[in-house]
Amino acid sequence: MSDPFAAVYEEIIHEHYKKPKYRRILEGLPFAENPSCGDRVRVSITLGADGRIAGAAFDGSGCSISMSSADILAEDIIGKTPEEARRLIETFLAVLRGELDVDELDAFGDAVAFKGVARLPVRVKCAALAWRAALSQLDSIDRPQENSKS
């Protein structure tokens, strides 16, 4: 890899994988799954009294990319409004789809570490998994009546 920061990125991913800060055992939430590798992750998002995201956590199993990505997601969305979080996630996913330049990730926190992954088509799905799960969680926060049915 020609990127001079490749080793730094790798270190960031490894750190979140080995010592996740936001991994909890979550019950009752649906998993997002990547059937091609069996990775699964679910994300919980709770809002505070001020309407901002007060808590985020994940639970699941998978490779270092999918698990570190989940931890970084949680870190990134805490303190944001659901709308801000949604925009952030959509930008991240658009980078992974190749629709936005990877340099967009420079504005992110540790998610910048996925600049290298964004160029690897097979692993993009791993990086995207938790962020997709978070989007559907945000959807159900917007429509609590549907969520409460289950």
Partner: peptide, 8 residues
Amino acid sequence: AHAHDVAA
């Protein structure tokens, strides 16, 4: 270790 990580 996840198989993807072993392969990577």
